[in-house]
């Protein structure tokens, strides 16, 4: 099963390689990873998606927590949370397909961020599934290039 894990860590040199090294050294999967600073100077938040049975994910969270630079590890999969990822997609846009590209972009509330003679670059944001759905619909038209961020996630506030 897929798990989204949020890690609060000290922004020390090499901290990212401690995390990726832990995953490669112990044979855990990383499906996506994204990291940036938080409000507190010196602290970063890292969101990573991984998969494995409950025993493996338990090991992953414990091992992450064992790293000296890590402050807090939360497996937010079981909680109510929002997740977002963003993709930049350059798709073929010739006279016959332009309207279709725009229509799909619109459906996914994406935006055209760059226009070329024969292509559009689309920005689309949403959950991992939504971005994938958009990619799947654009693929038959002809995707020339695609760049995706890792997923970021945040638990919802309690009502």
């Amino acid at each position: 099963m897929r798990h989204t894990i949020s890690v609060l860590l000290q922004n020390k040199p090499g901290v990212l390689s401690r995390i990726t090294g832990l995953f490669s050294g112990r044979g855990f999967n990383i499906e996506s990873l994204s990291v940036a600073q938080t409000l507190e100077p010196g602290l970063s938040c890292l969101t990573l998606m991984t998969s494995g049975d409950s025993q493996i994910v338990e090991q992953i969270t414990k091992q992450l927590h064992k790293l000296i630079d890590v402050i807090k590890v939360t497996d937010i999969t079981e909680t109510d949370y929002v997740e977002r990822e963003m993709a930049l997609i350059r798709v073929k846009a010739e006279s016959t397909t332009r309207a279709e590209v725009l229509r799909i972009t619109d459906i996914f509330r994406g935006r055209v961020v760059d226009v070329g003679a024969k292509s559009y670059a689309i920005e689309v944001t949403g959950s991992c599934g939504k971005v994938q759905a958009c990619v799947d619909l654009l693929r038959p038209i002809g995707i020339q290039e695609i760049v995706r961020t890792g997923t970021i996630a945040m638990t919802r506030s309690t009502k």
């Binding site: 040199p13 090499g14 390689s17 401690r18 090294g21 832990l22 050294g25 000296i68």
Partner: peptide
Amino acid sequence: IVGITRPCTKHNYL
């Protein structure tokens, strides 16, 4: 050496 010993130390520093 910090990179090399990262997986076999409890922690390390440069």
